[in-house]
């Protein structure tokens, strides 16, 4: 293809590829971006304002202020929840990666004509209620249940049970966000030409070296996207901790939820939300930069 080789350039100058009338573009953007500004950005500002409010003495009613001490109070009281949140969701993310990779690899390279069907099965859990699926783990991990008894027989459980322990919470988190790990991994693996793996084998790489030097690096964008899509929702989740854990396993999501909806301590709850988001965004940007996939979005 001659002269057209810089096809980006050429389409930029034609009418069809990319159009130059920005006015139409703004008209297309206004409703959606307007919505996101009013119901995402403004709420974050509102959240920040609320996090600095001071009590009026009346329960659930606060006034505008600049009470930075709310943050100190929130951290002092809830730092264990923060630590637990990041430990639980970190472990769950690693577990999900380990579990999801073989399945994604299988679907991408070995599934043949079953590929489409298997992908449907991966997203199928979304068709069943998140809450009910989580609740079902209470049945599966029940104290008298098969799984708990099996592990007890091997004396592997420090508390002689799984339910209402951190193990159940981590298992629940791993399970619930697994499809979010599988899909981006699959998308990245699917783009790898299987002949590359054969070429690696041809060039004296053992299957393991071939994987380490060829497949793994090429799948990194999927790994980054998958770990983010798992870690972010897991770290703010409180459903698993509530349904599967003991009161001592509560996460920061629980703290935000109870402060907002039960104690009606809006400033503390807002401060907690704000800290959580700040930590996650910092982690996300550092991670994306380190992984070198800034065009993730």
């Amino acid at each position: 293809m001659p002269a057209m080789a810089p096809s980006k350039k050429s389409s930029a100058s034609t009418g069809v590829g990319v159009r130059r009338r920005p006015r139409t573009a703004y008209l297309l953007l206004i409703p959606g971006l307007g919505w996101l500004s009013i119901f995402f950005v403004v709420p974050l500002i509102s959240l920040f304002a609320t996090s600095l409010q001071a009590p009026t003495g009346k329960n659930g009613v606060y006034q505008a202020a600049f009470q930075v001490s709310n943050y100190a109070e929130a951290i002092a009281e809830y730092w264990p929840q923060f630590v637990r949140s990041f430990i639980y969701s970190g472990i769950a993310t690693v577990l999900a990666l380990v579990i999801a990779y073989p399945l994604a690899y299988f679907i991408a390279f070995r599934a043949g004509k079953w590929r489409a069907l298997l992908l449907v099965l991966v997203v199928a859990p979304f068709f069943a209620s998140f809450l009910l699926r989580t609740y079902a783990w209470r049945t599966i991990l029940a104290d008298e249940g098969f799984i708990t008894s099996f592990f007890n027989m091997l004396h592997l459980l420090p508390e002689q049970r799984i339910l209402n322990t951190p193990i159940a919470v981590v298992l629940g988190l791993t399970y619930n966000f697994l499809p979010f790990m599988i899909l981006p991994l699959y998308a990245a693996l699917e783009r790898i030409d299987p002949r590359l793996i054969e070429a690696a084998g041809d060039l004296y790489a053992s299957p393991f070296t071939g994987f380490r030097k060829v497949v793994w690096p090429l799948s990194l964008p999927g790994v980054v996207a998958g770990t983010l899509l798992t870690f972010i929702p897991a770290s703010g989740d409180y459903i698993n901790a509530t349904l599967l854990g003991a009161p001592s396993d509560r996460m920061v999501g629980n703290a935000i939820q109870t402060n907002f909806l039960q104690f009606r301590d809006y400033p503390i709850a807002s401060a907690l939300s704000f800290i959580l988001m700040a930590i996650i965004l910092t982690l996300v940007f550092v991670y994306i930069r380190r992984a070198g996939t800034e065009d993730l979005v």
Partner: peptide
């Protein structure tokens, strides 16, 4: 007739009106 990048396709696209 020409090698890649010689401008033949661009010429054609200008005749078609796809390139100004």
């Amino acid at each position: 007739l020409g090698p890649s990048g010689c401008g033949k396709t661009t010429t054609l696209r200008m005749v078609a009106g796809l390139e100004d």
